Amino acid sequence: MPLTHIALRAGKPEGYRQAICNSFHRAMHETFNVPEDNDFVIITEHEAANFRYDPAYLGMVRSDDLVFIQITANNTRTVEQKKVLFHRIAELLGEDPGLRSDDVFVSLVEVEKENWSLGRGFAQYA
């Protein structure tokens, strides 16, 4: 049950933002065994003054097309699965909408299963 927050600079068209969501969800489905109907994503757009990043940290060449992707998910995946996920996200976002891999910043926040309530006030995974 991932919940994903994607942040990017304001001004991209809806089709571009939807391509990010679609490519990201495909990567999650292929590498993290996320079901097709398990698609929960929040996109926020930020003006330049509210979107800071170091363009060269760790040898990257980041541009204003940078996207921050923060995934909150159960802590059930191996390190190898995480590496495959990160690679596949960058690969698919490179295909559509055409992001450079240096502009794909992913953070995975892992939580225990009992920390979710998906509606009705129930802890569905506890």
Score class of each variant (00 low, 15 high):
1 M>L: 06
2 P>T: 09
3 L>V: 15
4 T>M: 11
4 T>N: 15
7 A>D: 11
7 A>R: 12
8 L>Y: 02
9 R>G: 00
10 A>D: 15
11 G>F: 11
12 K>S: 04
13 P>F: 03
15 G>Q: 14
15 G>P: 12
15 G>Y: 04
15 G>S: 13
16 Y>T: 01
20 I>C: 01
22 N>C: 07
22 N>G: 10
23 S>R: 12
24 F>H: 11
24 F>N: 06
25 H>M: 05
26 R>Y: 04
26 R>W: 03
27 A>K: 04
30 E>F: 11
30 E>M: 14
30 E>K: 14
31 T>E: 11
32 F>D: 09
35 P>S: 10
35 P>D: 07
36 E>Y: 12
38 N>G: 07
40 F>Y: 13
42 I>L: 14
42 I>V: 09
43 I>T: 09
43 I>C: 05
44 T>I: 14
45 E>H: 02
45 E>Q: 13
45 E>T: 03
47 E>G: 14
48 A>Q: 03
50 N>S: 11
50 N>I: 03
51 F>A: 05
51 F>E: 09
53 Y>K: 03
57 Y>G: 02
57 Y>L: 13
59 G>R: 07
59 G>A: 03
59 G>C: 01
59 G>P: 11
60 M>G: 12
62 R>F: 13
65 D>A: 02
67 V>H: 00
68 F>M: 13
68 F>Q: 08
69 I>W: 01
69 I>R: 01
71 I>P: 06
71 I>F: 10
75 N>W: 02
75 N>C: 07
76 T>R: 15
77 R>A: 07
78 T>A: 07
80 E>Y: 07
81 Q>M: 07
81 Q>W: 04
82 K>I: 11
83 K>V: 03
85 L>D: 12
86 F>R: 08
86 F>Q: 10
88 R>D: 05
90 A>Y: 01
93 L>Q: 04
93 L>R: 00
95 E>H: 06
95 E>D: 07
97 P>G: 00
97 P>E: 00
101 S>E: 08
103 D>V: 00
103 D>I: 00
104 V>S: 00
104 V>G: 00
104 V>P: 00
106 V>N: 12
108 L>Y: 10
111 V>A: 03
112 E>C: 01
113 K>P: 13
116 W>E: 05
117 S>L: 03
117 S>N: 15
118 L>E: 07
118 L>P: 01
119 G>S: 05
122 F>T: 13
122 F>P: 01
122 F>V: 09
123 A>W: 04
125 Y>T: 07
126 A>K: 15
126 A>C: 13
